[in-house]
Structures are given as structure tokens and as C-alpha cells.
Design a protein around this nucleic acid. Structure first.
Lengths: 336, 336
DNA sequence: CTGAAAGCGCTAACAA
DNA sequence: TTGTTAGCGCTTTCAG
């Protein structure tokens, strides 16, 4: 049988209260007693039951993290950074993949509730907004990551998509590009990025052209397909801004297939800075998501909420960062 | 205050035993009572406390998964498949990244123990073998994934590295390559793969050449560096078998830098089939790790052990699968 | 500085 | 078919 606090107490010749105190570093215990107890705990391989201590009202110091798919690098890196920060703060994180299914969301929320996590971290790709509402109503600490629900005001940490869209476009414009296309996605973040794109265009006195703004979903094939459409235009773009690296890789493929070279003929910029970006050929210039920062901030925020019981509902936006590699350059000059 | 089983019982006008029974689907409860109780539970947003039920001896139906780094695609895909299978079997998985640090391994093992996980899943990259021994001694269900410790006999699920190494080499030999180089890694799995490589060489009557077998660690730069060494040989290889995709990407880079083309001049084959492989240029032929199968089998095995309390110590080996893409072909004929 | 004892929320006999 | 009750292992006053 697993040793309990009683076994330790008996073995050490003290009461269970004393043992409990040395475990939790509470009360005042003589160094001698403490040492003895610690020794016995070690000998018996005693591990205090988290269940029992939870039952007495202690917090579990556990955070529940819900993401659509931990196998997606975007989420897994986020998860990793959260784990690290949580670890530093003495918390642990339970991650579950909801697979974009409400049924699973439901199930895991319930699981977390039963396990009495101290707080919920919910990322983009979570569908059951009603469930979130229920948690909010129950005053359970929640933080939204890379996910905006304007419906209620919650702590939120996300990337500044507007500025990201603006900066990528501005960078291309600075390089001298006049016709800059974007491949957008059917997701929340896209609309902000498009807004940034259009404002940058304006600021650089470039005309916005509907033909240069196409929407698709994130696969290499789609990126290639859309790019071909761009290339077929009478006046094709000299630069393409893809809203994620996958699409950018697709764009590269299409460009290469035409016998055009990157960045000489066409510049391509992605978004996310997944590992893909540095391994592509040529290495992809892209807007890096500050995943690590996002994770850290998210944990800090929710821990603050848990411990301080504060309800400020901050909305933190972290800037994407331009990572210049080899897929972008100035447009080909006629004079060359 | 959070509702307890008492609140539900009172509200439904029954005893807590009845409520407990409907929660667990035990005993015989009239449909009417059951419905009533369920309704109240829903109204009160009652979630049974996992802590309390654990305390009474019920299993937690939770599995502890320890991997070095959840941000690494290899591990995150593994994690995902385990999660899925566990979910199907009514278990949940807690994942923690140990970051290859014994200190963290220690910490998370202890965490899992305190949370009373029903079983441990431990993957390659785990250093504290002594800790594993302790668990084994305590008769705690454990399964090793992609990780062999010959020291004790434990349930193990891993990829068949020997056959993988053999098949990749054989494939290249079939294509007509005579000089096949390998880039190995400083990890456990490499030695089996090398063994497969050498045996395949033998079976195809090809000579083994020390110069064509170089070891390095997994970075693109290293892959490129080693490849350059190969290319500098008086008699360079016509095919390179890299023991992971990252190295293969590096090899591709080096080959391209020499103005050689793939696969016309040099064939390249990787191992793992990470997303990288399909996005590279040309798409990489590689040996796919059957991650999904591994995950499933691992969960099935450990759940069997937990529920059946059996102690058979199976060692399951799953075959890697050749995925032919565009980076391999026959060697250039002189006559062309 | 240490011990005794009252719960925490739930399960599982045992009664009714 | 349902209720009563004794713990499960631990924390936390309150005494000593």
C-alpha cells in the first residue's frame, strides 16, 4: 500500500500534524524534527496525495490549457512556453486538444472542472463560446490567447495583427514594390492584418487592388493556386504577402514553377515564422509571432488573477516581428 | 461556493448515495429519480470533485506523459495521437516537457505521483533511469515509447530502426546506387539504423566504406557540413541517407550549393517524415515514423496493464514506412 | 514546538 | 430502490 501521512508520522515518532507542517513549510518545527521527518518521507518514498490536500481546500496549482491541436507547431510552441513559465511560478499545466470539436471542448472543460484546475487558458480555435460564458459566470479565472471574443471582456493576450499586417506591407513598400498582393485566410486574425495591409498601402501611396487580395485556407496547394492567379494577371504583383508560412511555401512553389526566381522576380513574405520558414529554399522572410512572449504573459496574467483575485480584464497585444531572410528583395529594375 | 453532492441531494430530495449512484451509473436507480438528479446537477452546474473520488480509492483515469519537448514535432504528434486514443478509452493525458533536465524529470514524476496518475508514459530523451527504476519497484504501470532501456524489461513501443535503416538503404540500392552515404546521429536509434544500413549494403553486395558513414547532431548546418565532406571525397556518393529530415534538408542545401541537382546528381533520403519533408524543394523522400500507431499502441498497452494488472512486458516494434517523394532517383548514367 | 480532532466531498458497504 | 454511515489522506484550528 502507498504510504500515507500516518505511516510517516508513526515512523518518525511524531503526529501527522507535524508531518503536514514540514511538508508545507508552515508552523514552526525544530530543525531536528524536520530533518527526521524529511528523512522518513524519503525512505518511505512518501508522496503527499494531491487529492487529499485539494479536498481540504488547498489550490491545485494547476492550469487547464485547451487548444485545438497540440500537433500544430503554432500551438505546441505556445504550450511549451506556457509550461515553462508556469513551471517557474510553481504551477503545472494540463493540455488537451479539442480538435475544433464542441463535443471535446465540453468534455475537457468538464474534466478540468472536476480536477479543479485553478484557471483556464483558452486559445483560438475554440468554438463553444457559451461554455466560456458559463465559466465566466462562475467567476473562474480564464484567459484567452490569440483569441478575441468581443462579447465579454476577459484577459486576453494576442499578437498585434494589425501592426503585423502593416509592417510586412510597409517593408515591401520600402523595398520599392508597387504591386503587393496578399493571400488572406478565413480566420479572425486576417481581417486585422488586411486592415494593416491597406493602411500601409495608403501610407505609401499605393493603390489597393481587389484582384491582389485573395482568400483561401492554409495549405501549400492553395497558396500555389492563388499565386498562379496572381501571376496570370495582366499586371502581376512583384511581391506577395502570405498570411502564413504554409501559404508562402505554396506561393514559392508556384513562382518557381513559372521559372521565376525569388526574390529577383517576386518577393515573398510569410507570417508565423514556423520552423518551415528557415528550412525553405530560399529561407522565407516572415513575420514572427512572439509565441514565447505570448505564453509568458498569458501565464503571468492568469496567475495574477488566480492569486490576486483581480478582475481587470487586460487585453495585451504583442508585436509580430519582421524576420528578414532571403525571399524578399527590391523589385527588378527595368534598367538592369 | 461550489455545489457539492449534498447540495444536489438536498435539492433533488434524495440522499447523497443516490446522487453518487447516478453519477457513477452504479446500483439500480429508478428512471424518474435519475432524471430528477441529472436535472438538478445540470441546474446547479455541479461537477463531482475528482479529488474526493480519488480519495475514496477510485482510479483517476489519468495518464502522465513525459517528453523532453512538446514543441518538437516528433513529440507533439506522438502526444496528439496518445491523447486521441486515451480519449477514446476514457482516459486523459497530462503532458509535461522535461527539457532533457533531470531536475525537471524528478519534479514531474513527483507531480504525477502526487496527482495519482494511473500510469506513466515515458519517451526517449528521459535521463533519470534511476527514477524509472523506483517506479518499477513500486509496481506503477509504465510504458516506454521510442525509448529502449535494456536494463529492465518494460512494456515498450518503438519504431523498428533496424528495418528502417535496411529498407531505406535497400531502396537506394534498388535504384542502382553503389555509393550510399549515411549521416548518423549521436542517439540510441542510430546504431540500429546503421546496422540495417550495413546489412542492406551486404545483401546488395555493396562495400561498406567508413568514409561514407559520418556522425553529427541534428541541425541543418551540420547536415550541410557533413554532406560537403562527402562531396569532397575522390569518389563521392550518389545517394545520401540522412537519419532525420533536418539533416536531409541540410544535405540538400549543400548539394544545391555545389550546383548539383536532386535527384539527378544526388539522391537524398531522410527519416521521420516531419512536415518539413513535404515542404522542402524537392519534396523529400523519407522513412516515415509511424507516430500515430506508436501512440495508439502505447496507450492500449498501458491501459491494458492498468486495468488488467498484467505484467507481460511486451516490446512492440512498428515498421517505418518509405515515403517516396522527389528527392530520390536512379544515379546518373554515364551514357546519358 | 507538537498533538488531537474536526472536517473537505465522495464511495461503498450495509440497512431499511 | 434508496438512506445511513464509516472512512479515504490531508490541513488546520485549538490546546497543551
Amino acid at each position: 500500500m502507498k504510504p500515507t501521512i500516518y505511516d510517516v508520522a508513526k515512523e518518525a515518532g511524531v503526529s501527522i500534524a507535524t508531518v503536514s507542517m514540514v511538508i508545507n513549510n508552515t508552523g514552526r518545527i525544530s530543525t531536528k524534527t524536520r530533518k527526521k521527518v524529511l528523512k522518513v518521507m524519503d525512505e518511505l518514498k512518501y508522496y503527499p496525495s494531491a487529492a487529499a490536500s485539494t479536498l481540504t481546500g488547498k489550490s491545485t496549482r494547476t492550469l487547464g490549457l485547451l487548444m485545438p491541436n497540440i500537433a500544430n507547431p503554432f500551438y505546441s510552441e505556445l504550450a511549451r512556453s506556457m509550461e515553462d513559465r508556469a513551471d517557474e511560478l510553481g504551477y503545472s499545466v494540463i493540455v488537451c486538444s479539442t480538435d475544433y470539436k464542441e463535443e471535446r471542448e465540453q468534455k475537457y472543460i468538464s474534466l478540468f472542472l472536476r480536477k479543479q484546475v485553478d484557471g483556464f487558458i483558452i486559445t483560438s480555435g475554440f468554438n463553444s463560446v457559451d461554455l466560456i460564458k458559463e465559466l465566466v459566470d462562475q467567476q473562474i479565472p480564464i484567459i484567452l490567447v490569440a483569441y478575441n471574443i468581443s462579447k465579454f471582456s476577459l484577459d486576453t493576450v494576442s499578437v498585434d495583427d494589425y501592426t503585423g499586417g502593416y509592417q510586412a506591407t510597409a517593408y515591401l513598400a520600402e523595398l520599392g514594390h508597387q504591386r503587393i498582393a496578399v493571400i488572406t485566410e478565413t480566420v479572425q486574425s486576417s481581417v486585422e492584418r488586411v486592415r494593416g495591409y491597406r493602411n500601409a498601402l495608403q501610407d505609401y501611396q499605393l493603390a489597393y487592388d481587389d484582384e491582389l487580395c485573395l482568400e483561401t485556407s492554409a495549405t501549400v496547394a492553395n497558396g500555389a493556386k492563388v499565386t498562379e492567379e496572381f501571376l496570370d494577371l495582366k499586371e502581376p504583383p512583384t511581391a506577395i504577402f502570405a498570411f502564413n508560412d504554409i501559404l508562402a511555401i505554396g506561393a514559392m512553389e508556384a513562382v518557381r514553377k513559372r521559372g521565376l526566381s525569388i526574390p529577383e522576380d517576386i518577393s515573398i513574405i510569410g507570417f508565423d515564422d514556423t520552423p518551415l520558414a528557415s528550412y525553405s529554399n530560399p529561407p522565407l522572410t516572415t513575420m514572427a509571432q512572439p509565441l514565447e512572449d505570448i505564453g509568458y504573459q498569458a501565464i503571468d496574467l492568469i496567475v495574477a488573477e488566480i492569486e490576486g483575485a483581480k478582475r481587470t480584464s487586460q487585453r495585451i497585444m504583442l508585436p509580430a516581428k519582421l524576420v528578414v531572410r532571403k525571399s524578399t528583395g527590391g523589385p527588378l529594375k527595368k534598367t538592369r
